[in-house]
Nucleic acid binder design. Structure first.
Lengths: 226, 226
DNA sequence: GGCAGTCATAACCGGATTGTTACCAGCTTG
DNA sequence: CAAGCTGGTAACAATCCGGTTATGACTGCC
């Protein structure tokens, strides 16, 4: 669970991130079109909050680009009296908007509403590289292939995809997939990874997708292995 | 695709329904808590628009009740300066709100955004592919065939048809058909699906219509199985 | 009462999914 | 080198899940 906030106004950025962090959301920020898009790619947030006026390109364009790559909910921030623009944003794929000024409490409530809705409908496939996961249908797409996976494998992939290209620590995987904290259950994870690797045809020695980082965790590779 | 609008103000009701009908949405209306809830049960709309002040019970309560039974998007209508209440509504499960006065264009845009998000745009409630259901007469048409079905089977098909081509989660089916929340009664669903499959002559191994998605739910296939 | 239709409940089966145990190989460390 | 860690693999057991069948309660109808 991670949120991205893009705004060129430093004060606004501070206020918004503070409110969200108070509500215990991890927040990533950016202050321009370029850095915002880059942050979206590297951080893969679960929700994006975009200002309309951005250096380097409008929030509309950013909204459109993000929507083409992802189904993460998008919330637009705007000044008063730009209703026409708002309609345009919603048609571009934004999910909600707030007119400045707004209360932090409202912001948090609407963010929660968007996340709850997005989470319910897991119909939105998450993707990274040539992998695309449909957590609800329990389907994994690898290029042309379509592979049926189990609920546990889906949960595993969910976390790995959300942190594609980054190492995910063993303990985090255990907590996310099984819920219980603490060690002792590494064996389950070994099995799960092993079965998943077999299913997608991955070689642990030369992993194309599921890389092992000894004594740390696993990582989903996004760049085709050189 | 059907929308429900609940408001005790006749003028508001007229304006809203007119705007939505202009955008070619079928609209059902109600003017109180009781009639609203009843209409929701009988009409099974894909989206509900609720005023906060209703005779017979507040829009909040109605929102909560609906959310407990369905995942249909809910939009709240409210007068200015009730922000605290809005937060409450969003926490209760509402997905969006509009403050009066609002422009019809905004209303339609936000309704569309909600529907797109819910992934139900274009779904037709009573027919899909070569299936067509008459819930009143309890008749199911498959191509040329006409099959008599039971009330429970009708309710099952209703939800599946409304989400044709999409997986419908077991819990949602249970809630829709029997009304109980929570699991434990998967057995009933097994039976119901089994009898229905027998009736329409469907093979669970190679389902032409009623597909099983293990550990998720059932799905009505719209594309003739290759 | 007899009958047919509907629905709830339970039991059983086979396959899929998941948990458990064991063993092996490689690496680090003392 | 031995001990102890790691991760990969295999085999097996327990459990879950959906399909099937059987049975009984309940209803409305003749």
């Amino acid at each position: 669970m991670k949120l991205l906030v893009v705004d060129d106004d430093a004060d606004m950025l501070a206020v918004v991130s503070f409110a969200l962090r108070q509500a215990s959301f991890p927040v990533v920020t950016a202050n321009s079109y370029g850095t915002g898009l880059a942050a979206f790619h590297t951080e893969l947030p679960d929700l994006a909050i975009l200002d309309i006026n951005l250096p380097g390109g409008s929030g509309f364009e950013l909204c459109g680009v993000i929507r083409r790559e992802s189904n993460a909910p998008i919330m637009m921030l705007t000044a008063r009296g730009e209703e026409a623009d708002l309609v345009r944003a919603l048609e571009l794929g934004a999910d909600d908007y707030l007119t400045k000024p707004f209360s932090p409490r409202t912001l948090v409530a609407r963010v929660k509403a968007l996340l709850r809705r997005a989470g319910q409908e897991g119909a939105s496939p998450t993707r990274a590289g040539d992998l695309s996961l449909d957590a609800e249908l329990l389907l994994l797409h690898i290029g042309e292939r379509e592979i049926r996976i189990t609920p546990l494998e889906s949960r595993l992939l969910q976390l790995l995809l959300a942190n594609a290209g980054q190492v995910v620590h063993t303990d985090r995987l255990l907590v996310h997939v099984w819920g219980h904290r603490g060690g002792g259950d590494r064996q389950l994870l070994k099995q799960l990874v092993h079965r998943l690797r077999q299913k997608i045809g991955d070689d642990p020695e030369q992993p194309r997708w599921l890389g092992t980082i000894p004594s740390v965790g696993y990582m989903l590779r996004v760049t085709p292995q050189s």
